[in-house]
Design a protein around this nucleic acid. Structure first.
Length: 805
DNA sequence: AGCACGCCGACT
DNA sequence: GTCGGCGTGCTC
């Protein structure tokens, strides 16, 4: 082979560089560079990281001069064919840069860190200038770290060629190495060596005894030192004598190692579980890339079904991927999986350090772990030969990434399923309407678990009409019936969980007399309060009207903006129940790493009587002594200017209700609401998902929202409002040419929080069923938006946005 | 993204 | 005159 070239995607996230660049492979590397490796390449004056995507054996006929790859960082590809193809698909699907898609699939440790230094090369400079440099005449050259003054002086030197700027790229990935000890002697040899020892060679004798004892076992030097009390020097001596061998071995930073986990046996399955397992196992064995919707009420044993099917995949000599929302990836959850599959399990979540994440990734990549449990980004775990992909709580919106690339792990999971010819199981008690509708149409196979494992009834749910109760409530946020229930439970030495629904805090107006919420006449969506313009605005269509002084429905003056904080409630509650220990769990108290788990542990140890928190307490926690769950304000999420508000409210209430009385004690749920008649609340009370599904589908159909229509959101932003608006209306005009009459455009409208960091935001939402031209148009739009060099004007496209406020 | 090049106003 | 402000275009 005489020459080789590589196509490289460079680490420059911009539209203009969103294409492969061709580099020559250095002679010494020819034949050893493959697609999916990380390389360092010269790019302009700089050196940057890149990913090889294609290897060419012929010099391409191009006019530009081809530079050489500077360094190859990996000996084997870090991204396989599946991942490379996935990256291309993802870039197109999410309108993202290829480089962002490649990076998102790897642990952060495998990204590059860039360093710039400047070296003085001339002696013809003033003393003052010399002072700026160190002994090697070098100094860090970073506009952010240096004062503007110094930076200017250094830049000038560079321009005058009196100093040279040096660009460095570092691979942050470092493996941890550990020394292990292996005995090279058998029992007879140990005896023989012992006889040869001098009488006073006590240390060496002890070492020989130890070597005799461990036999062929390999253990770390650290452990050996601990066990024998001998120093490292003695082991070195032993190595010199040829008794033992020391080796450097890669060590994984295992975050869960200390907790020795007992292995548990599979539980006996109920008939419905058994049937679900059979259906899924069949698909695993037959290598069908089918999607299942596993719909099971809280406590119906979905997790056990997951574990069985994982076992089936493993038995089939395949691997398994299980996705869980970050928030329910608790130690209990991890223990449950580890106790079944032991050290085969790798866990990926945001609580791990960069190094830990990298090590878990390496374990998976080397097939040392065959079961992966993780949050959103774990969907890219480098598993091969996947036999089953599970997504628990599939309706959770946290599966969608908020920043580039804005992928939905559900889409990626299904894509991987079809690549690996394996089933994907979407599990939920309250499936997203999209998934449930697909199950209806037979696109997904529908599996149901309607009974709870222990056969106990769902907790009794009581609705408190706050329109009535507020007049005589002991506190603004707590009604008398709820307070009584709390007192009763505390007397019985049982625990209480109170949830404050904080979503949509302070953004809408509601009548405290009748529960009326001002809605848009065109969109059937709550209007949002704008204090800057003193008006109510619809973020979908742009409709605007004055803030009402009296309730349009009941003429009451008690119409005002609605919202409340956990701190305030905690105070109120403490006043009403001075003797009670309350734990507060919200964004403020859980900001620190591990704080979340600590609070839950405290509550689990019964160090507190009441756990008061926001949404985050609704998921995954399972405390046997909690017999009362209270929802202080069911309405906030209901009145969000969002077509999913009813769905979210229903899901949240259903989920939180499931938290009560999971053990042998019967649970009680109290929901305070200003809208006791609303179908989402009524049906959550009855835990009737199916009926909710029917009504909500009807609403979506009438409003033309998903799952009947696809949606794509376009957002432009920039420092000049007129420019931003103009661009948006321009796009609106172009879209009208491209789209068929079936499609609907909402907007353009300014975003509710119009100005963040002096940037103005405008948005537009396209609702459509089938628009074959749309993707090409949007791609073009994105490309031109940067080429137009209307710089400072940013454009973002979000396919299937979670919400568009 | 960065970096260079180039065109303008406002300083030693 | 030149310094440095930012707009424009390019990076294999």
């Amino acid at each position: 082979m005489s020459e080789q070239f590589a196509e490289v995607i460079v680490d420059v996230p911009s539209m203009q560089t969103n294409q492969p660049y061709t580099y020559a492979i250095p002679t010494e590397w020819i034949g050893q560079v493959f697609p999916g490796m990380r390389v360092i390449v010269p790019f302009g004056k700089r050196k940057i990281l890149g990913f090889t995507t294609k290897i060419l054996s012929k010099r391409p006929g191009v006019s530009f001069k081809i530079k050489e790859i500077e360094e190859v960082l990996d000996l084997t590809p870090v991204l396989n064919t599946e991942m490379l193809e996935m990256a291309s698909w993802l870039a197109k699907w999410t309108f993202s840069f290829k480089i962002s898609c490649l990076q998102v699939m790897l642990p952060a440790a495998m990204r590059a860190s860039y360093n710039k230094t400047i070296k003085l090369t001339s002696t013809d400079v003033s003393e003052e200038v010399k002072q700026l440099f160190d002994e090697q005449n070098e100094v860090k050259f970073d506009s952010k770290e240096l004062s503007a003054d110094v930076f200017k002086k250094l830049s000038k030197l560079s321009r005058e060629k009196k100093a040279e700027v040096i660009y460095q790229v570092h691979d942050r990935a470092r493996t941890k190495k550990v020394t292990v000890i292996k005995s090279l002697l058998n029992t007879q040899e140990v005896q023989k060596q012992k006889e040869l020892l001098r009488v006073n060679a006590d240390k060496l004798r002890l070492l020989l005894d130890f070597l005799g004892k461990i036999g062929s076992q390999i253990l770390t030097q650290k452990d050996a030192i601990k066990k024998t009390g001998l120093s490292a020097a003695v082991f070195t001596q032993g190595e010199k004598k040829g008794w033992l061998k020391k080796e450097k071995v890669e060590k994984y930073r295992d975050p869960y190692r200390d907790a020795e986990i007992k292995r548990t046996k599979p539980k006996q399955l109920k008939a419905a579980q058994q049937k679900a397992v059979e259906r899924i196992d069949h698909s695993i064995v037959q290598q069908q890339d089918k999607v299942f919707l596993l719909q099971g009420v809280t406590g119906s044993g979905k997790t056990e079904v997951y574990l069985y099917t994982i076992a089936c995949a493993l038995k089939n000599k395949q691997t398994a991927l299980m996705l869980v929302p970050e928030i329910s990836l608790t130690p209990q959850m991890v223990r449950r999986v580890k106790s079944r599959f032991g050290s085969n399990v790798a866990v990926l979540h945001s609580g791990l350090s960069e190094g830990e994440k990298y090590d878990e990734w390496r374990r998976i990549e080397r097939n040392d772990a065959t079961v992966v449990v993780g949050a959103r980004s774990a969907v890219f775990a480098p598993l091969e030969n996947i036999g089953i992909i599970i997504m628990d709580e599939e309706h959770e919106t946290s599966y969608k990434q908020e920043d580039m690339p804005e992928y939905n792990a559900r889409d990626v999971a299904i894509k991987r399923g079809s690549w690996h010819h394996c089933p994907v199981v979407l599990g939920s008690a309250t499936p997203s309407l999209e998934s449930r509708a697909r199950a209806q149409k037979g696109v997904y196979e529908w599996l149901r678990l309607d009974e709870r494992i222990n056969g106990q009834p769902l907790p009794e749910v009581q609705l408190i009409d706050m329109r009535q109760e507020l007049k005589r409530a002991p506190a603004v946020d707590i009604s008398t019936p709820l307070l009584d229930a709390i007192k009763q439970r505390l007397e019985q030495k049982e625990q209480v969980v109170l949830m404050l629904n904080r979503r949509g805090y302070s953004s809408f107006i509601m009548c405290r007399e009748c529960g009326f919420v001002l809605k848009c006449p065109n969109c059937d969506i709550s209007l949002t309060l704008h204090m800057d313009s003193h008006s109510m605005k619809c973020h979908y269509c742009g409709h605007e009207e004055p803030i009402p002084r009296t309730c349009p429905s009941c003429q009451s003056k008690k119409i005002r903006y609605y919202g409340t904080g956990t701190e305030k409630v905690e105070q109120e509650l403490q006043q009403l129940l001075p003797e009670t220990k309350i734990l507060r769990m919200d964004v403020d108290t859980t900001r620190r790493k591990g704080a979340h788990a600590k609070l839950l542990r405290q509550f689990g140890n019964k160090e507190a009587d009441i756990l008061l928190g926001t949404q985050m307490i609704a998921k995954g926690l399972d405390f046997p002594d909690v017999t009362l769950v209270g929802v202080l304000n069911a309405d906030t999420s209901l009145s969000l200017p969002n077509f999913r508000s009813a769905e979210r409210t229903f899901q949240l209430l259903t989920q939180v209700s499931g938290r009560a009385g999971r053990a042998d004690k019967l649970g009680q749920v109290v929901i305070q609401t200003f809208n006791p008649k609303h179908y989402a609340i009524q049906l959550a009370k009855k835990q009737n998902y199916e009926k909710f599904f029917g009504i909500e589908m009807n609403m979506r159909h009438r409003g033309g929202y998903p799952p009947y229509f696809f949606t794509t959101q376009i957002v432009t932003s920039g420092p000049n409002e007129a420019d931003v608006a103009k661009k948006m209306f321009e796009i609106d005009g172009q879209l009208k040419q491209v789209l068929s009459s079936q499609a609907v455009i909402l907007g353009p409208t300014p975003k509710p929080i119009m100005r963040i960091n002096n940037q103005f935001y405008y948005q537009l939402v396209i609702k459509y069923k089938k628009e074959p031209e749309l993707d090409a148009f949007l791609e073009d739009l994105l490309l031109n938006s940067q080429k137009e060099a209307r710089q400072k004007l940013k454009l973002k496209i979000d396919r299937d946005p979670i919400d568009f406020i």
